[in-house]
């Protein structure tokens, strides 16, 4: 996606990587999130991207020659990430293997809900501990919807 020049090819590889991440979610026993990933990302978001690529009819272009600041930022970030990898792989005992415990009967604030695979755990968390973020998410979606309507509206007889 980064090195290719055709946006459609990039979108196809993006779908491939999103499906791969969904497979990793399945391997981590987060089945609901895997289904959500396929539906929202690979289904809705990438279809939107491909639709816009088709609508705008972007042709294949040459790459931008990056500036000095860009090169410096890229080098520093890759170096920092490599440093993190080395620090992580150098000491395997720092993070032992994850183990799955039996889920709690009734989760509370002091004893949070254990990692379980069922969908009802998500609902329980969403409507108890994360009630305010959940409602904020609804507000955010409303704001996004209104914003898109305003952006997409053609303002006639108005010079901007």
């Amino acid at each position: 996606m980064v090195v290719g020049r055709n946006p459609v090819n990039g979108a196809m590889f993006m779908i491939l990587s999103l499906v791969g991440v969904a497979g990793l979610f399945v391997l981590l026993n987060a089945f609901f999130l895997a289904v959500l990933q396929i539906l929202v990302y690979a289904g809705a978001v990438m279809v939107l991207f491909l639709f816009i690529v088709m609508l705008l009819d972007v042709d294949v272009v040459s790459k931008r020659s990056p500036g000095n600041l860009t090169i410096a930022a890229g080098t520093v970030s890759v170096f920092l990430l490599g440093l993190g990898f080395v620090a992580l792989l150098d000491r395997p005992q720092m993070l032992p293997e994850p183990t799955l415990l039996a889920p709690e009967r009734l989760p509370s604030l002091e004893t949070p809900m254990a990692f379980v695979t069922g969908i009802q755990a998500y609902g329980y968390s969403l409507f108890t501990k994360y009630m305010l973020p959940f409602q904020m998410t609804g507000l955010l979606l409303l704001v996004a919807m209104i914003g898109i309507i305003v952006l997409s509206k053609r303002f006639e007889n108005k010079s901007v």
Binding site: L33, M113, F115, V116, Y122, K129, Y130, L140
Partner: peptide
């Protein structure tokens, strides 16, 4: 999964919404 809590997995839900 590593910490055996539900919080991170629930937060992914919010991130997916914000991303969309």
């Amino acid at each position: 999964r590593y910490n055996n809590t539900m919080d991170g997995a629930v937060f992914v839900f919010f991130i997916i919404t914000v991303a969309a």
